[in-house]
Computed example of a mutant assay.
Amino acid sequence: MTSTNPHPHGQMTYGLLFDVTDDVSRDHDDRLPPLSEHLVRVADSKDTFVGHPVEPDLRRVNAREAARHILACTDLAHVHYDDPLQALALLDPLPRDNRLRLLRAATERSWMPYPTARPRPRAVSGCPCPCTSGDFCGGCGHAGCGGR
């Protein structure tokens, strides 16, 4: 998968957790499916990400990563487990509202914003040139101008 985002898997995991959280928040039935099955089902439904195909193996990686985020938001973070999806079975008895709070916390924990370039602030005060925001103005002659 080619992307300009240095954290594409993190973004995919966030999207997966967001969608599962949305499903649980809209489903008012107290008989929710097992959390691992829910994650895998939603992950398997995501065959593209930002217009790029997502291989089935990567979908499973994202489901496991989402499970790790969920487990990290619990008292089970210190428990050893071979497969984080299997460890989620310990959380299946949780009531719907508790599961929803846990999913929201995991979704927030997994958020990785796209990096943005920030201009370096310049020490020039009062200069209307772009050099005051870190851009090149061509050299305005003011002391500290980035265009010199």
Rank of each mutant, 00 (worst) to 15 (best):
H9L: 10
G10V: 06
Q11M: 12
L16H: 05
L16K: 06
L17C: 08
F18N: 09
V20Q: 08
V20K: 05
V20L: 02
D23S: 14
S25A: 15
D27W: 01
D27M: 09
D29P: 04
D29E: 12
D30E: 15
R31I: 06
R31Q: 14
R31M: 11
L32D: 14
P33L: 07
P33N: 10
L35E: 09
S36Y: 07
E37Y: 05
H38A: 14
R41M: 02
A43F: 14
A43L: 02
K46D: 09
K46F: 11
K46R: 10
D47E: 15
D47W: 13
T48N: 08
F49G: 02
F49S: 12
F49P: 09
V50I: 08
G51R: 02
V54C: 03
P56A: 08
L58C: 00
R60I: 02
R60C: 06
A63E: 06
A63D: 06
R64S: 08
A66D: 09
A67P: 08
A67F: 12
R68H: 07
R68I: 00
I70E: 07
A72C: 04
A72L: 05
C73Q: 11
T74I: 06
A77G: 04
A77M: 05
V79K: 00
Y81E: 10
D82H: 10
D83L: 10
